[in-house]
Design a protein around this nucleic acid. Structure first.
Lengths: 218, 218
DNA sequence: CCGGATCCGTAACGATACTG
DNA sequence: CAGTATCGTTACGGATCCGG
């Protein structure tokens, strides 16, 4: 939406004054999955170009949405969400939850698929009651991707990489299987039986519980 | 974000392929408050220009977010949200709820203030438990604006105009008082005592309950 | 090489005039 | 009243170049 502001005394318009420019919300989407470096972001969103990317990052830093941090042992710099930025999780995932329903037209590049982006949106689509009182983690390996979902009494948090805490379930599958499951064209029971999903850790009861917690009803 | 799509198989990106262009989310914001005509929208968002406005409306119709309807007795055409569009209430209000926290800088035009836009965002900022089991309506008259909030067991729905159903509370105040209350610079009790708010209908108990249901904690 | 900054052609926006 | 047409201005997208 350009750096021109709407200039309206409306909370939605003021949010969009910061978040409304092209690419901005997709950048925050990436940060919702964890800290990322300039080069990683550029690899994911190459059409931004280095100039646009550095522009947006500087703007988000200035508005207190992200901050630069040194990442673990090697001090390679990265960007991550501030508390204010983390509070965007709810609205952005709500938007993604809405987007799950949308038809996938021919302009979508299927090779751009990343399971963690779908999983991220699933963490807001389900019913919080399905995980009330539950506290555990699930880890996914989809093709070369690794990500996990931390469940904590009704709240679900998806992040890239392996889980820091012990996981109740670890599964492995390919992208086609993952998409078929999300789109309801396949069932967890069938995929497990046929070997399309491998249960690397956890028992069948936990496996079933995981899909119940994540259940998405189109 | 232009009619160019991101082309990513990501629910957030697909949502933004439809909603990401400049002005689009502000249009939907207006429809969340009720049906509106071309001319009314243009009066609210004059910087769009007639061409941009008709472009966006056509795009939203094509994507099934809004539809054209004939408004009550006189058959003046108007646009209103479809079911799919109405489902955007949650994500957009979540964004507005986040925006309530943002500082109001000098680029904001104070004369653009509309109480119903603030109230709209407040309907998503509070705790649903505060209105669990409650079913009633509140009506507001802020300067020349009239709008109402329908409470229904944890869900709050703000709309322009008077309430179709009987209201539990009807209040009247000016914009300065409304903003001071929302920003926590004034309290309902003081405003009522000093006559800054007039309680046109309902008792003090209902008045207090209303503010509890709507309570916004910065 | 990584994180940027500079430059430039193209596409979207903002304003106004015009039409059914 | 509800749009279309036109046009100057601004942002985007892609490539190239700079400093550590």
């Amino acid at each position: 939406m350009t750096n021109k502001t709407y200039g309206q005394l409306c909370p939605i318009a003021r949010s969009l004054d910061i978040l409304g420019d092209r690419w901005t919300l997709l950048l925050i989407r990436e940060f919702l999955l964890g800290p990322k470096r300039f080069k990683e972001l550029l690899a994911i969103l190459p059409a931004m170009g280095t100039n646009r990317l550095s522009e947006r990052l500087a703007m988000l830093v200035q508005n207190g949405i992200i901050q630069q941090v040194a990442r673990t042992p090697s001090s390679l710099p990265a960007y991550e969400l501030t508390d204010l930025g983390e509070q965007l999780r709810k609205p952005i995932l709500a938007l993604g939850s809405w987007g799950l329903k949308l038809p996938i037209d021919e302009r979508i590049d299927p090779t751009s698929a990343r399971a963690e982006l779908i999983a991220l949106c699933l963490t807001s689509a389900g019913d919080p009651k399905a995980s009330a009182g539950l506290r555990e983690a699930y880890e996914f390996q989809v093709d070369a991707e690794v990500f996990h979902i931390q469940v904590n009494d009704g709240s679900l948090l998806a992040r890239s990489g392996p889980s820091a805490e012990p996981v109740a379930v670890r599964v492995q599958c390919d992208m086609a299987t993952f998409l078929a499951l999300v789109q309801g064209q396949d069932t967890p029971a069938r995929a497990l039986r046929e070997g399309d999903i491998k249960l690397l850790l956890g028992d069948r009861q936990a496996f079933t519980r995981m899909f119940k917690v994540l259940e998405y009803k189109p």
